[in-house]
Design a binder for these strands. Structure first.
Lengths: 215, 215
DNA sequence: GTCTATATAGTGATAGAC
DNA sequence: GTCTATCACTATATAGAC
């Protein structure tokens, strides 16, 4: 069983800088910003606390870098979902499925983003300046709006405001993952039961949204 | 304008103990447990930090008392909503309306409860032992389940699992308030616009759930 | 680049005076 | 019941040796 030369992690970059980043992300995800210390990060990395500050100077800097990356990745998933050229029903199904799958790979992301945006008005300002105002992100929403209006004028779907449809899909998708720790713990579910539950919930959300959109 | 004798707050109890409790609740709601210190609580109350510990001994004790009260109040609202003797459609409408109104009076509650349950497995255990297992709370869900099944057998509503219906209503209701700080800040809405938005969202959620329940 | 050492400040909690 | 004083810890951040 000599595995000396086997590369075990496809994306592994063993520089201290990236190891600190990765450990920090894991801890921020699990515990949030306030409850995570640079001392704890250093301990789990196996370096000194000074090194964390050497690379990122402040805990806030380290956090921001991770936060920004995660928001960008999430917005990209949303952007990509809107590229679909299928029928509107198929597009909705594909989009919801894509969101569920992306969050299944990263189930702590919704809470991580929510927590920091709710608790820190400064981060909301930061998000507004860096994303919401950017033309490319405005375009994503306008594209979605235009397509919905078009389908409605053709009489293929029911009347609903684009913002309401967006909020409805976001609610049901995001809340599934926000409530996952409670689902698992309060109902004593195994990991495999949780996986089944997510799949079942995905199907059900798709079914319900389609029904809402029926003319 | 002599108002010396006017009682300004109907529930005000000016004992230090309750003032500490009230300020603590406000700060825990705004910042969460980890980001709130007993020093800060004392400063806002206008007493010394030692006094906070005199009444509640530990920060965890103080938090638990507030946390428990809030969960109990929330579960009572849910319990009351199930007492309705109206038609199922009217019952659903009434229930969703009740949840929206209760949360409008306490918009930070969903995040407060969510944050502490997600970040602290010990609090989930505490919740499971004190509520989920209690016969009275099990009964609330079984009542809801029975009524739904009954309506389905009578062919008055579509087939849907009770748990799915519950999650759907919870998703759309709770997420509205979880995302409120982002809605307000990112879209630069005034308080009065936010109030309108909540009312509009309530109507829309009721409409959608009714549509989902149509046979 | 990584370490040790430390400055400075804040934390939760308690002892003891009044 | 409320205060002052203090303990033992931990926090972030930096200076300086190697």
């Amino acid at each position: 069983m000599n595995m000396d030369n086997i590369i075990t992690d496809k994306t592994a970059n063993d520089s201290m800088e990236s190891r600190i980043r990765d450990v920090a992300q894991e801890l921020f995800f699990r515990q949030g910003f306030a409850a995570t210390s640079t001392t704890q990060i250093a301990k789990e990395v196996g370096c000194t606390q000074a090194l964390v500050h050497y690379y990122y100077r402040t805990k806030e800097n380290l956090f921001r870098q991770i936060f920004l990356e995660q928001i960008q990745a999430a917005l990209q998933v949303v952007g990509e979902s809107l590229l679909s050229q299928e029928s509107f029903d198929a597009f909705i199904e594909q989009a919801i499925s894509l969101y569920f799958d992306a969050l299944t790979r990263n189930p702590q992301l919704p809470f991580f983003v929510l927590e920091e945006l709710v608790n820190n008005p400064e981060r909301r300002r930061y998000l507004r300046e860096n994303f919401v105002k950017k033309p490319s992100y405005v375009m994503i929403y306008m594209q979605f709006e235009a397509r919905l209006k078009h389908e409605q004028q053709a009489g293929r779907i029911a009347r609903i405001e684009p913002f309401d449809l967006m909020m409805t899909i976001a609610s049901m998708t995001v809340f599934t993952f926000l409530s996952l720790p409670m689902y698992q713990d309060l109902l004593s579910r195994t990991d495999s039961q949780v996986k089944d539950y997510i799949l079942q919930r995905k199907r059900e959300v798709i079914r319900m949204v389609k029904k809402i959109l029926k003319p």
